[in-house]
């Protein structure tokens, strides 16, 4: 159980590093992303969880190898620069590491109603519209 909590804390630390927002978009809600990621990982397969946590360790190992410093000790912009270097790597498997790690974060952040509405998808208005409309056989 402790090991799980430890890994979950690691996941939480990765959120601001992996999840960037562009100008004018709603800010990341760390708690919301963290809660969704926890739910997403716990409803999936043990194999996926194992892979996910292994990839966190791989990413941290890479950081130690390249920068001789643990990922957590880097300032946010430094950590993001480190990730950019991985995204632009020629090895596609290496690129896949942060891409896979960030998938639950993207699902969480871009799943928020205000974020979707900022992108032109009026979730709450559609919910109201659909609630009034029921198709019967």
């Amino acid at each position: 159980m402790r090991w799980r909590e430890y890994l979950q804390r690691r996941v939480e630390k990765l959120i601001p590093v992996l999840l960037c927002t562009s100008y004018g978009q709603p800010e990341v809600d760390l708690e919301q992303v963290s809660a969704f990621s926890r739910e997403f990982l716990s409803s999936g397969t043990p194999a996926f969880r194992l892979l996910y946590f292994t990839l966190i360790l791989v990413l941290e190992g890479l950081c130690m190898l390249r920068l001789r410093r643990p990922l957590q000790s880097l300032a946010l912009e430094q950590a993001r620069d480190f990730l950019e270097s991985i995204y632009s790597s020629r090895t596609s498997l290496l690129k896949a590491v942060p891409l896979l790690l960030s998938a639950p974060f993207y699902l969480a952040h871009y799943g928020r109603e205000d974020v979707q509405e900022a992108l032109g998808f009026p979730v709450s208005a559609l919910q109201e519209e659909a609630a009034k409309r029921e198709v019967t056989r």
Binding site: L18, C20, L83, P98, P104, L107, H109, Y110, Q116
Partner: peptide, 18 residues
């Protein structure tokens, strides 16, 4: 929808946000 599009884009970080 946005969350699914976000998780399928082949970029990460700042480029993803853009």
């Amino acid at each position: 929808p946005p969350p699914v599009m976000a998780s399928t884009l082949p970029w990460g970080g700042r480029r993803h946000a853009e």
